[in-house]
Design a protein around this nucleic acid. Sequence first.
DNA 1: GTTCCACAGGAAAGCTAGGATG
DNA 2: CATCCTAGCTTTCCTGTGGAAC
Length: 455
Amino acid sequence: MAHEAAVPLSERPAAGGGELASAGPPPSNSGRGTAADVFDAVVNYSSELFKGNFEILRESYVPSRLPHREHQIRQVAEVLAPALKGSVPSNLLIYGKIGTGKTAVVAQVRLDMQRRSDAHGNVAFVNVNCASIDTPYSLLQTIGNSFAETEEQRIPTGWSLDRVQQAMRELMDERGGTLVLILDEIDRLVSRSGDSVLYTLSQLNNDLERGRLAIVGISNDLKFTSNLDARVRSRLNEEKILFPPYDAPQLQDILRDRARDVFRDGVLDAGVIERCAAYAALENGDARRALSLLRVAAQVADREKSKRVTSDHVVKAKSRLERDIILDCVRTLPQHCKVLLYAILQAYERRRTGVLTGEVYEGYARLSQKLGLPPLHSRSISNYLTELESLGLIRATIVSKGRGGRTREIVVDVPTAETIPALEEDELLAQLARRRNLSQTILTNFDNPNRGGPY
DNA sequence: GTTCCACAGGAAAGCTAGGATG
DNA sequence: CATCCTAGCTTTCCTGTGGAAC
């Protein structure tokens, strides 16, 4: 146990979010290495880098200022403002790539409206992230339950969809006023469940007696409305706003704006903000990415007990973020998908050339049986291969081998040396690591009989 | 030009788990 | 307790495909 605690935190696999722990003291090397030492160090530590709340650099933080989004804030506010006077606002679709400030702008307009609504009107907001709530049932249930005041009024799982819809309507009518429904990542809802629920919601104002509904859809996919039924499309598209990506100078302004409240004067080297902004500008002008880079660079510097954050720290932060994204992704795969990826990595390690679907399936089936896991059908594995490719963990090219048939040639797109240990964190796959270590020990003992051992 | 291979991938059915209802 | 409902995952069935072999 003492050995476990003595392992520097920075050398352990990142837990959960896969990121460094939030800014704080570097691990003590001088102490006895107990948990108590670590806690003492945290409590007594005062960073030379930070003066303010480090959370300001997190993407979840909603800042009071949104540089270079003043125009979009005005546009969104103009569309939603009629709700304050008791009229129904137009439905609104907001498009833009990841990290262009869509969600933050809507959140800020929402806050402003809620402040005024308390005094002048009756506007409610329901924010739904369609990445997690992506079925008609769960969406209607979530909307209805946001109005439920008692446990009895809540809509349970198990009712028919019609009944859920009816209950949601009644709850909305009971409350009255205007509901602004914010559907973040609305494209995910459509791709997962089609547009039937959007049709239902867009028709809702015809059925409601006292309540009114306006939909604000937020999407990263500029073309998602092309999959919609024409009626739904025209209803949702009453107003639309496009958020352009930030360029490097704009990202610099955003970073400076936040850095002012977080860092002590003069601790950021010249070029740190510029480098973070430049990296993020190359990746579609993603402000979240720029903030993550600055945040992790500061954490790295803090851990190194550095008195300044330098460009080198940004470079380290970049590679750390890239690796963590991959490893996080691997850790959250379904079990069969992990076994499949393991089989691909094994085959790829041996051959160092593309592996064909049939070979991958055989390897996967063998590995599954070894682990006591009933292998899935090849059709399911085909789906998992598509998923692994869309996650960027493998690359698959369709090749035709003539009479040898048409198949996918798969190459690995992640560092094997780091991905295999991440997969072996899984309880089932850990068996393979234990077996490998055991045979390695036996071989070592066989080669060097003088080192002692059971023989 | 036709045949054949080994899949790719769409559609639909089947199965399981979990909760509600009478 | 049987029945009904949904979600989520898997299997089954099927058609389509590109290019070497015939």
